[in-house]
């Protein structure tokens, strides 16, 4: 049968490194904290979902024109909007679960879902 060798220091180091690597990979992949943050966009033309980790510039058609949304570095913002008041553009970047903004005239609603970093359940404004 197999004649087992005497294991030497580096064998243990390599095995320990491998176990640590597996543990690190498992933690980073499966820990609930790293649940993917997503950008949900509701428009007159349907519902869209994007991964906040992949940068993109997106155009959405609405009743009064095109709302342009940018996803960058894990945050989402409205770059430009055909609306007059520009509330959506001014509300800045959305980054944590529950953040949202909307362009009412163009019927575009953005919401970040996923890991809820805010400690409140809802916001009164």
């Amino acid at each position: 049968m197999l004649k087992l060798p005497r294991l030497r220091p580096f064998d243990y180091i390599a095995a320990a490194f491998a176990v640590a690597l597996i543990a690190a990979a498992a933690v980073s992949a499966y820990s609930s904290g790293s649940e993917a943050s997503r950008l949900k966009v509701q428009t007159a033309g349907g519902e869209f979902v994007y991964d906040l980790r992949s940068d993109a510039t997106l155009d959405f058609d609405g009743p009064i024109g095109i709302t342009r949304i940018e996803i960058k570095d894990g945050t989402a913002r409205v770059l430009s909007s055909p609306c007059r008041q520009q509330i959506c553009v001014n509300s800045g970047a959305l980054d944590s679960g529950g953040d949202w903004t909307a362009c009412l005239p163009n019927r575009v609603f953005l919401e970040v879902t996923g890991a809820d970093e805010t400690e409140v359940d809802a916001l009164s404004y």
Binding site: P5, P9, F10, D11, A14, A15
Partner: peptide, 10 residues
Amino acid sequence: RVVSFVGISI
């Protein structure tokens, strides 16, 4: 004396 086939293989 530091490493065996096992360590190399890992």
